[in-house]
Amino acid sequence: MRHAALALFALSLAACDAAPPPATPAALAPAATATPAQPPADAPPPEQAPDDLDAAADGDLVVRADAVWQGDVSACRTGQTDVDDCLVSTMRAGGASPDALAATTRLIALGNPGYVSAWREVDGVGHAEITYPFRANTNQGLWLVDAEGRAVDVDENVLPAGAARLRSELKPFLEAHPDAMPFPPARAVGSEAAPDGGLRLRFDVPMRTCHACEDVGFLELGYDFTAERRYEGRSVIALREAK
C-alpha cells in the first residue's frame, strides 16, 4: 500500500509540473472537401423549391389551394414605392405561403401584379380567383387549375389575331363588327360531361368596341379536361351576336 501511495504522489507532482496549455488553440486544419458525385445523365432535374421566386417567374408554376392570400395592399398605392416589390413585401409580412408568393411572382413577371385571393373546385377542376389590385378597370380574373397544378388564364389571348379569326364560322360576326374585341372577365356559363369521363367548362367573353361600350356579342369558349382532370386545351365554340 505504501508503494502505491508513493506512486500516486509522484504522478500528482508530474501533473503539476507539466507546462500549461497554450492560451490560443492551434487553428484546425480545413476539412477535406469531397468532390460531389455527378448525377446520372438520365436523372430527372431537381425539384423546384416552392419559395424559389426567380424559378417561379421563369419556370413551370404549380398552383394549389394554399396559394390563396388575403390582405391589405393599400400601402402599395401611394406611388412612393415600386408596386411589385411592395406587393411581395406586404404579402411576406402578412404571412403569405411560398405557393402564394410564387403565384404572385408569376403574375408580376407577366406584367399583371396580383395574387390568388380565393380557391374552389368545380367537378374536380380548381378555380383560382385572381385579384389585380392595381388595375384601373377589371380587378378580378380566374385561373383554371388541372390535377397536376397547371393553370390556364380564362382571360388571356382568347381570340388570337391569326388562325381563330380565319375560321369561316367567325367571319360573319367579325365582318359585322370589325372593331369588336374580347373584354374580360370571362363568365362561366356551364359544363358538359364527356362519355369517357372528361369535362368541358364553358365560358362567355363579352365582345365590345370599347371598355365602357355595350356588349355587341359573346365569344363562347370550351376548356377541356380528361377524366383524370388533366388540361387538354381550349376551343372556340361560337361567336354570336348579343341579344
Rank of each mutant, 00 (worst) to 15 (best):
D52T: 12
D52P: 08
L53K: 03
L53Y: 02
L53R: 01
A55I: 02
A56P: 03
D60W: 07
D60Q: 15
L61H: 00
V63C: 08
A65F: 05
A65W: 06
W69V: 02
Q70P: 03
G71Y: 06
D72H: 01
V73C: 06
S74D: 11
A75F: 00
A75S: 15
A75R: 15
A75L: 07
C76P: 07
C76E: 05
R77K: 15
T78N: 02
G79M: 12
G79P: 11
Q80W: 05
T81Y: 01
V83F: 00
D84C: 08
D84I: 02
C86M: 09
C86I: 11
C86N: 07
C86K: 09
L87D: 01
S89H: 09
S89V: 07
S89Q: 14
M91C: 10
M91E: 07
M91Q: 11
R92K: 15
A93H: 05
G94C: 00
G94T: 01
G95H: 02
G95A: 06
A96P: 05
S97H: 04
S97C: 02
S97A: 09
P98S: 01
D99W: 10
A100W: 09
A100V: 10
L101Y: 04
L101D: 01
A102E: 05
A103H: 09
T104V: 10
T104A: 13
T104M: 10
T105W: 02
R106F: 03
R106C: 04
L107P: 04
I108D: 03
I108T: 09
A109T: 07
N112E: 10
N112T: 13
N112L: 11
N112Q: 13
G114N: 05
Y115E: 07
V116E: 02
S117Q: 13
A118H: 12
W119P: 09
W119S: 11
R120F: 01
R120P: 00
E121L: 06
V122P: 00
V122D: 06
G124Y: 03
G124D: 04
V125R: 13
V125F: 04
G126F: 00
G126C: 04
G126D: 05
A128K: 02
